[in-house]
């Protein structure tokens, strides 16, 4: 078996990893050992938070919808129940967007929800 010299590949490997750790705090972007740990943690956090982001945004949208619905004289709870009865299938992302960017459309939807509730 011919002998394999490690230098080139070892350098390449370390350079690649330190490249990924650019801008990390303290030793995180300097020391290979620490950087390796930090990149691993960063990957795990990124993966976890991609899932979490979906929940976080849903919460934000609900807060916005609630605020807008209350201006129409409905609580969030009543509003959503009204939408179900009125068979309006808009999701929370869209409703929150309407509340901000097209308040007229939102009031119209709220009116339908109210009608369906029989309030």
């Amino acid at each position: 078996m011919p002998r394999v010299k490690r230098s080139v590949h070892a350098r390449k490997k370390r350079r690649k990893l330190l490249g990924e750790a650019k801008g990390y705090f303290g030793q995180g972007h300097v020391s290979y050992r620490k950087a390796k740990e930090q990149v691993m943690k960063a990957d795990v956090s990124a993966y976890r938070d991609r899932k979490r982001r979906k929940r976080v945004f849903r919460r934000l949208w609900i807060i916005r919808i609630n605020a807008a619905a209350r201006q129409e004289g409905l609580s969030y709870n009543q509003f959503v129940s009204g939408l179900r009865k009125a068979e309006i299938d808009l999701d929370r992302k869209v409703l929150a967007d309407l509340a901000v960017n097209d308040p007229a459309a939102f009031s119209l939807i709220a009116a339908k929800a109210k009608a369906a509730l029989g309030v």
Partner: peptide, 13 residues
């Protein structure tokens, strides 16, 4: 389509 909107008007359902 779930909604058509714009110009201060909207249509649903």
């Amino acid at each position: 389509i779930l909604l058509l909107g714009g110009d201060g008007d909207a249509r649903v359902g």
